[in-house]
Amino acid sequence: MGIKIENISKSFKKIEALKDITFNVNDGELFGLIGPDGAGKTTLFRILTTLLIANEGTASIVGFDVEKDFQKIRNIIGYMPGKFSLYQDLTVEENLKFFATIFGTTIEENYDLIKDIYIQIEPFKNRRAGKLSGGMKQKLALSCALIHKPKVLFLDEPTTGVDPVSRKEFWEMLKRLQQKGITILVSTPYMDEAALCDRIALIQDGRILQIDTPEEIIKHYPKTIYNVCADNMYKLIESLKKYTHNYNVYPFGEFVHYTDKRIDFNPNELLHFLEEQQLKNIQINKTQPTIEDTFMELAK
């Protein structure tokens, strides 16, 4: 049942935000929608949460159609929008109570589900939501999205603007929620978070580039990648771009990810070339592709 998306398209005036999107999220799956700002992630979330109507295509949430059965859907999903959307002037506890009441439940009734998360912000329950730090706001927003025990959880860029420590905690929370049987669709611009999902869809410019498990996506990268480094990064990139056999030259942290057009590429040839360019301390080593390498290859 989960989520079914079939041939969804959506345009705003001249801009095609989503182009023929089709994929399913299985029951109980933790599914990631991975793509940069402007890829169409939020538009898709708004369609699935019944806040926006698609121009074409259909979608259903646990069997309910997003257009016809929108009221039913609203009762069984939790939605955490990318922009902090709680009441800044209400306290932590007031916000939670408000959402519980709207959904006809109480904090006590579903406390078990949110306990792990809420317990971390409970010491600040009398603080106004607007005065919380990013990580705490995120935990409150998640608590509010969960308070009615939804079957499906939609999280739009929950980790944007959040530091690595809170990010790690957040993903651990998601794993625990998944174990409680909740289907989760989460979007993120951070490619390193892709590995934490069961399956992912890579999205750019309103189009799905690929859908699979993170392992399979990496496995299908067509080239051998070499980590290249030298003492002057700027000159190294310039030199690699000059090298006629280069297929891709992408800076990647302290290295450059280099791929060669030839099948019988010999790294020593490249080493010689770089030495001729007066580069020092050159190292060339094979490395594993990442989701980001695959993304760039598909998005080219």
Binding site: G35, P36, D37, G161, M191, Q204, F295
Partner: peptide
Amino acid sequence: SGVDPITRR
């Protein structure tokens, strides 16, 4: 942050 991987590079 949030920029696509190619533009970021």
